[in-house]
Lab assay of single mutants.
Amino acid sequence: MAAGGDHGSPDSYRSPLASRYASPEMCFVFSDRYKFRTWRQLWLWLAEAEQTLGLPITDEQIQEMKSNLENIDFKMAAEEEKRLRHDVMAHVHTFGHCCPKAAGIIHLGATSCYVGDNTDLIILRNALDLLLPKLARVISRLADFAKERASLPTLGFTHFQPAQLTTVGKRCCLWIQDLCMDLQNLKRVRDDLRFRGVKGTTGTQASFLQLFEGDDHKVEQLDKMVTEKAGFKRAFIITGQTYTRKVDIEVLSVLASLGASVHKICTDIRLLANLKEMEEPFEKQQIGSSAMPYKRNPMRSERCCSLARHLMTLVMDPLQTASVQWFERTLDDSANRRICLAEAFLTADTILNTLQNISEGLVVYPKVIERRIRQELPFMATENIIMAMVKAGGSRQDCHEKIRVLSQQAASVVKQEGGDNDLIERIQVDAYFSPIHSQLDHLLDPSSFTGRASQQVQRFLEEEVYPLLKPYESVMKVKAELCL
């Protein structure tokens, strides 16, 4: 049975990233139509530049190519590739079939990587351009969430054990800070992308030097003109047959890092959902379990974690691919890159769409948070109580021993009897502590235990987050809708 299948058929496997999760716009960027249309555009740009620099290419040939950029006979191309065992030459023939007058000058002087690699770089750039505003929107939604809850005390956790208090907004800023680093890295790697350009079979530009009869300047002009037509500021000066596969490492490393950030955020949300302090959106008709109707599973956060793990592992592909590119190139890269580049971007696209949807509907339960604080705060307040007693004339050592005994009794009630923490009640009825009984409410005010959390939130948002989001103001209103 021949390899390949009808990918629109229910009898043929289709990647869930495309069929179930990723956005239509990201799927289109990695589609065959987008790819092969870009090949034709690159052939047109090459012909236009070659004509401008004096090669015998007519206006009629150029116009014929322009008129057929979208006229792609995919069936013919597939048949040609089956016959020739070469995808680029299959599309040269297919393009030439609908451009008979231009057929002889299509791909003039070029090698397969002229269309293959340059198209990949265009796709990487455009895919990054799709991700950047999506990530900015996630940051914006979380920034709104953090600002609104900047002063809401909550129990902090280290080692997932109760620690000092923080605020809900401050905790959210930990998430935002990681995503801001990801946004900066995505922008950097996007701006650092260079075009492969017009380089020939081993990167020496020998074929173009021959076409222009040894004119170095025209060869350099050709490279520059096509690079500018493709919208790049610069091209690699040095290439082998391909652009260095280190570029793929750079791009997928940034995406993998984004995956790590999203995994951490969504894990926190899942843990908070278990504590009943916070939940992701839950639709009115949504079913959490087929057997347990009360369940409210954090399905979206779980999906993000599941896909983020996949995204983090994909960076190993370009690392290994770059390491086995012998001399000017081997074909070890080809099949692998067809999979890992598309999957990385479709996965990143999915987790950003999902995280935006989550961040637009996060639900906080202040009463649950308050109750958990009441359970733990008495123990945390013991040092403040000791200091207040010393100020009232008591002995630190005597007070410490009193607190120690009462704390152990209260802990026994919590752990052995399943009761509430009654340390404060014990202190309130103990005559030894009568000098500070009137101060206990103040000493137990949760806001006095959150330090500068709310001020940190305000400063972080104003100095770091809002300036970073400013270039994306025009796209901030787009909502994230999930079908599944």
Rank of each mutant, 00 (worst) to 15 (best):
G5A: 10
S9G: 05
D11R: 11
D11I: 15
D11H: 15
Y13Q: 10
L17N: 10
L17G: 08
S23G: 10
C27A: 15
F30M: 14
F30Q: 09
S31A: 08
Y34V: 06
K35C: 12
K35L: 11
K35T: 10
F36V: 15
R37W: 10
T38Y: 05
L53F: 06
I57E: 00
D59I: 10
Q61Y: 10
Q63V: 10
K66V: 09
S67I: 13
N71Y: 13
M76A: 12
E79T: 13
E79M: 11
E80G: 10
L84E: 15
R85D: 00
H86I: 00
V88M: 07
V92Y: 03
P100I: 10
K101A: 12
K101L: 15
K101C: 11
I105T: 11
T111M: 04
T111I: 01
S112L: 00
Y114K: 00
V115S: 07
N118Y: 00
T119N: 04
L124F: 07
L132K: 12
R137Q: 15
V138T: 09
S140M: 15
R141Y: 15
R141Q: 06
L142S: 06
F145K: 05
G156M: 01
P162L: 07
A163C: 02
A163W: 01
G169E: 02
K170H: 08
C172A: 09
L174S: 12
D182G: 03
K187A: 14
R190E: 08
D191F: 07
K199R: 05
T202V: 08
F212N: 05
F212W: 11
E213N: 12
G214S: 10
E220W: 12
E228Q: 10
E228W: 14
F232K: 02
I238L: 06
I238N: 06
Q241Y: 00
Q241V: 01
T244M: 05
T244I: 03
V247E: 09
E250A: 12
E250W: 08
V251K: 00
S253D: 05
G259P: 03
H263S: 10
K264F: 04
D268Q: 06
D268E: 14
I269Q: 04
L275Y: 07
E280Q: 01
P281D: 08
P281A: 11
F282W: 10
Q286S: 02
S290G: 03
M292H: 03
P293M: 04
S301V: 14
R303Q: 05
C305A: 09
L307M: 15
L307S: 10
H310D: 03
M312Q: 10
L314F: 14
V315H: 10
M316I: 13
S323P: 03
V324N: 11
Q325R: 02
D332Y: 00
R337L: 03
R338P: 01
I339R: 03
C340Q: 02
L341K: 13
A342Q: 10
L346R: 06
D349Q: 08
T350S: 15
T350K: 06
L352T: 06
T354Q: 14
N357V: 09
N357Y: 07
V363T: 05
Y365T: 07
V368Q: 05
R371G: 04
Q375G: 05
A381H: 06
M387Y: 07
V390A: 10
K391L: 06
D398F: 10
S407L: 03
A410R: 04
G419S: 10
D420P: 04
D422S: 07
L423E: 05
E425D: 13
R426V: 05
D430S: 14
A431V: 12
I436L: 07
I436F: 04
I436H: 04
S438H: 12
H442K: 07
D445A: 13
S448E: 15
G451P: 06
F460T: 06
F460H: 07
L468N: 14
L468F: 08
K470C: 14
K470Y: 15
K470S: 15
